[in-house]
């Protein structure tokens, strides 16, 4: 460094008290890291004699600052104004006016007790009711079907009776000319009767069901 005399503060002018104070501020801010770049520039500009570096203030920031100023004056809103009012309420909290307090108090005292709704119980009851309805519904449907079937059978009964094959003798199944053997041939006879009556039985059932 000593080889570069241009960097030495030779014959440097004595700073004024104000300049010293501001310079101290800048150094403190830089060390503490609690001041932003633009403000740092502004402080430096002040040391150099400028009015807080107007050039260092961006248009966007100025617009924000104006909005904040208006919000603090009660015109519009700004999130930092919320913080400012919170600080004010913490430093000097104001009294609640009597009328507002009375309104809040009466509101609470004359409020009807809130009926608590136990949703698990409600949903359980709804599910139970739905189950009962489903059961009753299906039972009713079943009964209706049975009743309808019975009714239709009742309506068909005369027709069925008219067309049903009546019980009769098995005589027609055998030729009178051919005499029966006294012994043997029983199975053949029984089978003939069974086959004939089974056919009758099916025919009657079909008639009753209305198939025919």
């Amino acid at each position: 460094m000593k080889n570069r005399p241009e960097l030495e503060l030779v014959d440097a002018p004595q700073p004024s008290k104000k300049q010293l104070a501001v310079a101290t501020e800048v150094v403190r801010a830089m060390v503490g890291g609690t001041i932003d770049r633009l403000d740092n520039e502004a402080l430096l500009a002040l040391v150099l004699g400028d009015d807080v570096a107007e050039a260092a203030i961006l248009d966007e920031e100025r617009a924000e600052a104006d909005a904040l100023s208006l919000a603090l004056a009660g015109q519009g809103t700004h999130e930092l104004a919320e913080l400012a009012f919170a600080l004010r309420h913490a430093a000097l909290p104001r009294e609640l006016d009597e009328l507002t307090h009375e309104r809040l108090l009466r509101g609470a005292l004359h409020r009807k007790p809130e009926r608590r709704v136990y949703w698990p119980l409600v949903s359980g009851m709804v599910a139970l009711a739905a189950g009962v309805l489903l059961f009753l519904g299906s039972a009713t449907l079943e009964r209706t079907k049975r009743e309808e079937a019975a009714l239709s059978l009742q309506r068909l009964a005369p027709l069925v009776a008219a067309t049903r094959i009546a019980p009769r003798s098995t005589e027609a199944l055998f030729d009178r000319a051919l005499a029966f053997e006294l012994r043997g041939g029983e199975s053949e006879r029984v089978e003939r009767i069974v086959a004939s009556r089974a056919s009758d039985y099916r025919a009657n059932r079909f008639t009753r069901w209305g198939v025919k």
Partner: peptide, 12 residues
């Protein structure tokens, strides 16, 4: 400029 300083102050 005060408005800007106050804005920066509240931000900080």
């Amino acid at each position: 400029t005060l408005d800007v300083v106050l804005h920066r102050a509240l931000k900080a």
